[in-house]
Amino acid sequence: MNTGPTRGATIETDPITDFETMVRRLKASIIIPVKNDARLLEQTLKALRPQLEQLPNTEVIVVDNGSSDETESVAKAHDDVYFLQELSHDSSPYSARNLGVVNAIGDVLIFLDASCVPSESWLITGLRAMVENDCDLLGGNVVFTYSARPSLGEIVDSIKNIQNERTITRFGFAATANLFVKREVFETLGPFPSAIRSGGDVRWTKLASSQGYLISYCPQAIVHKPARGFSQLVRKERRTSQGSVAIGNDSGRHAPMIRNKLTRCLLPFDPIRAFRKLSEVQPGKAPMLILPVMATLWYLRAVSLISYLRELARQRASTR
């Protein structure tokens, strides 16, 4: 771990209002798991630096999960960053996040992906929203960014993935790409599922909301994330299917999961919502792109179903 600044001491800030003072005196820990993402990690840490000056009771913990690029040197170049390594469960961001939690001193634990570059007021906005709403968990807004000529994969990624507003308000779960959590929730529920690559945030935040913890959404707590290309999306579907099998294992009910995935294959996405998103990303081209986008969404749903069935069969065969 980097030596970094003195940890544990509360730094008083000039009072503005009672509410503002409460926000600024919060101890918070930003936990960033990373594997082979040095370039975007550097952008994220640079974007955080002025926000840490505004809120000096906040620390940043970067947890490397087995990188072979310049991730370690990038993290250690920032004096205000504490660097850890989680190598016992290589390629498991949830194990990395759990290690960050164990070493964190904050009363608020903030999970941020290395590829999610925060807007200039992200941190203070998220903390204010937590205090104002008196919520236990708060998901922020993940805004996708695109290349100069967005590919079909990038467009589909922004339509399909990390839709925090929808998943929080309708289903009670959020992605750890941009998530604020009170420490007491972790102390009660325990850590994220470890040694898995995908799906741990869905399982954990669903558990939290089912146990009565209040989860809210803040559209102004914005981070910017590059959209994935098509091949990355296919790999993600295969990974998340493993997480879905784990959720089915938890409940002991795989049949509803399979039916849901089959239904989503037959009706992969709301075409009206897809068209609206297309109109935002590619103004004027939505009519031409809607059919390729819907076909891609269908293909990814099929990949998800097939990957789920294969993973379930593999697990059952291994226990015989």
Rank of each mutant, 00 (worst) to 15 (best):
P256F: 05
S198Y: 13
A28H: 04
M130C: 07
P191S: 11
R320G: 14
I290E: 00
L179M: 07
P33D: 05
Q242M: 15
R24L: 12
L207H: 13
K182M: 07
L45E: 07
P33A: 06
E120F: 04
A317L: 11
V143S: 06
T169C: 03
A302W: 06
L262V: 13
M22R: 14
L291W: 14
V60L: 00
I110V: 10
V185E: 00
E237W: 02
C116M: 08
L99H: 03
I30T: 08
Q43I: 10
Y299L: 13
A221R: 02
N36S: 08
G248W: 01
R310T: 09
S95Q: 02
Q54F: 13
V156G: 04
K35W: 02
G139A: 15
R301M: 07
R314Q: 12
H89A: 08
E12F: 15
T125S: 02
N249K: 10
V181R: 01
V245W: 01
V102Y: 14
T167W: 05
A177C: 11
N133Q: 11
N57Q: 11
Q43S: 14
A9C: 09
F230D: 11
A104Y: 00
T169V: 05
F275Y: 09
L305Q: 05
I162D: 00
T263S: 13
P56D: 03
D14I: 15
V143A: 08
R273F: 10
N178E: 01
I272H: 06
T3I: 15
L48D: 00
F144W: 15
S29C: 05
A274G: 08
Q282M: 13
S231C: 12
A148M: 08
T296E: 09
K160F: 10
R301W: 04
S318W: 08
P219E: 05
Y299Q: 15
L266Y: 11
N36Q: 07
I306R: 07
G172I: 01
L112Y: 00
N65W: 01
I272M: 06
T6G: 08
V62D: 04
S73M: 14
N161A: 05
T145L: 03
M257K: 11
S279A: 14
T58W: 01
F83I: 08
R183F: 10
S231K: 14
T6I: 11
I124C: 05
T10C: 12
A114N: 06
K285L: 15
L48F: 11
I222N: 02
A38Q: 07
F192W: 11
F269S: 07
N57E: 10
A77S: 15
S147W: 09
R235M: 10
N133A: 13
C116T: 13
D37P: 09
G248M: 01
V181W: 02
S279T: 14
V63P: 00
S147T: 12
G66K: 02
C265R: 06
N260W: 14
I30N: 05
T10P: 13
R316S: 10
Y217P: 00
T188S: 15
F186K: 08
A255V: 11
V185G: 01
T205A: 06
T240D: 14
R276Q: 12
F19E: 07
G100H: 04
F275R: 02
